[in-house]
């Protein structure tokens, strides 16, 4: 039941091209839409969630040009030519990314609704700072609300992923 609805032609008055999870995609959409809306409604990437649409919860976080941002507060019109990474872009060749693996192993995800935003935020952190301190992790994730875990198992997950990423990088499994 995940078919993407095809909007009527009249709605699609804007057009951009973005690199979505490494793949160039063209998308036509109603021009009032945010990045969140085109990802979910026009590109079928429903892994990006929303919890408020006002920038107050972090559920819709994606990585835009290397930085975690809230897709509900970015106009799609401003994304032409930019690089977007969503949760769908993390696993490669069917293998979970070490952060996903750690969240799965260590209770980092309960209801799962904050999880995509949380994982992408953690990824952006580790891309920039491969060995963050505990405080840096707490701070980096402070824009992602979670109502299930109390965050501690999320911190565990990020910390466990750090070692895994180093290991996989050493063996060349991860670039």
């Amino acid at each position: 039941m995940t078919q993407t609805r095809l909007p009527a032609e009249s709605e699609k008055t804007a057009h951009i091209r973005i690199a979505l999870n490494g793949e160039e995609v063209d998308v036509s959409f109603a021009p009032y839409k945010t990045l969140l809306e085109i990802l979910r409604e026009d590109l079928g990437h429903t892994g990006t969630k929303h919890g408020c649409e006002l920038g107050e919860c972090g559920a819709c976080a994606v990585i835009l040009d290397g930085e975690p941002v809230l897709s509900c507060l970015v106009l799609a019109l401003e994304c032409d030519g930019r690089n977007v990474i969503t949760i769908e872009g993390l696993a490669s060749n069917g293998e979970l990314h070490p952060i996903q693996e750690a969240f799965a192993n260590l209770g980092g995800s309960q209801c799962g609704y904050c999880t995509p935003g949380m994982i992408l935020t953690a990824k952006a952190l580790l891309d920039r700072t491969p060995h963050p301190s505990h405080d840096q992790i707490r701070e980096a994730l402070s824009g992602n609300l979670c109502r299930c875990t109390g965050y501690l198992q999320i911190f565990d997950s990020v910390e466990a992923a750090i070692a895994q990423i180093s290991e996989r990088k050493r063996t060349g499994e991860l670039k």
């Binding site: 930085e67 975690p68 809230l70 507060l73 935020t121 701070e139 980096a140 402070s142 824009g143 992602n144």
Partner: peptide, 9 residues
């Protein structure tokens, strides 16, 4: 200000 995500933009 606000959160890391918001400060990024």
């Amino acid at each position: 200000v606000a959160t890391p995500h918001i400060r990024n933009v």
